[in-house]
Computed example of a mutant assay.
Amino acid sequence: MRAILLLLALIAGGAHAEDAPADGRYSMTPAENGFLRLDRDTGAVAHCATENGVSACRAAADERAALMAEIDRLSKENADLRAKLAGAEAPKKPLPGEQEFERALSFTEKFVRRMMRLFREEAPESERL
């Protein structure tokens, strides 16, 4: 809406959209049934118009074709990856054996004993057991 108001102000003032300051992100040029909006950051071009009191900007035809091609490519890639994922089996990891369990338990016990010893050494004399 702001862009349309700016365009109307420029037209009413006898200026052209090309004469607008170049410090904004968008450049607007009058076109048939509206104006063209150039995004100076991305180079995207859109045709903007007001229909039934509603302002709308639509991507230019060449950009739309490129966007649709990219959407189609990504959709196909997504479908291919989903098919590969559905066909792949999840790797089955065996449960740890008795020896691994005892090793982990021993490690945990040593860790807890060492922490308790550190706590006792760091505690003030009045709180030691």
Rank of each mutant, 00 (worst) to 15 (best):
121 E>S: 01
125 E>K: 11
82 R>P: 00
80 D>Y: 11
111 F>R: 14
81 L>I: 05
82 R>V: 08
89 E>K: 14
111 F>E: 12
73 R>M: 01
82 R>T: 02
68 M>H: 11
101 F>S: 10
95 L>R: 13
92 K>V: 15
107 F>L: 07
99 Q>W: 13
126 S>P: 00
79 A>Q: 08
76 K>S: 07
96 P>L: 03
99 Q>Y: 04
69 A>Q: 06
101 F>H: 09
87 G>N: 12
87 G>K: 14
92 K>Y: 02
115 M>G: 00
96 P>W: 06
73 R>A: 13
99 Q>L: 03
108 T>Y: 15
88 A>D: 03
68 M>K: 15
106 S>W: 02
72 D>L: 15
72 D>I: 09
76 K>A: 13
66 A>T: 01
124 P>V: 00
107 F>M: 05
78 N>M: 12
68 M>Q: 15
103 R>I: 02
104 A>H: 05
90 A>H: 06
101 F>E: 09
128 R>V: 00
84 K>D: 06
116 M>W: 06
128 R>H: 01
115 M>I: 01
77 E>Q: 08
72 D>R: 15
93 K>D: 02
119 F>P: 00
82 R>H: 14
98 E>Q: 15
85 L>M: 12
125 E>G: 04
104 A>S: 08
69 A>H: 06
126 S>V: 08
71 I>A: 11
87 G>F: 02
126 S>Q: 09
98 E>W: 10
127 E>I: 01
91 P>H: 03
115 M>V: 00
82 R>N: 04
115 M>P: 00
73 R>V: 06
81 L>H: 07
87 G>Q: 13
66 A>L: 04
73 R>T: 08
127 E>A: 12
113 R>N: 09
112 V>D: 01
114 R>G: 06
91 P>Y: 01
78 N>R: 14
94 P>I: 00
109 E>S: 14
123 A>T: 05
73 R>C: 01
89 E>A: 10
108 T>Q: 12
112 V>F: 11
90 A>E: 09
127 E>W: 06
116 M>R: 14
74 L>C: 09
78 N>A: 09
123 A>S: 12
88 A>Q: 11
69 A>T: 02
101 F>R: 15
77 E>P: 04
96 P>K: 08
77 E>K: 10
108 T>I: 14
102 E>D: 13
122 E>Y: 04
119 F>T: 05
80 D>C: 05
119 F>Y: 08
68 M>S: 13
109 E>T: 15
98 E>F: 13
122 E>T: 11
119 F>A: 10
115 M>E: 10
108 T>V: 13
90 A>C: 05
129 L>F: 11
124 P>A: 03
84 K>Q: 13
105 L>M: 15
88 A>C: 06
122 E>S: 13
92 K>M: 04
125 E>Y: 05
72 D>G: 07
71 I>M: 09
116 M>K: 08
118 L>Y: 07
85 L>P: 01
75 S>N: 13
73 R>P: 04
67 L>S: 11
98 E>P: 10
79 A>M: 03
111 F>H: 12
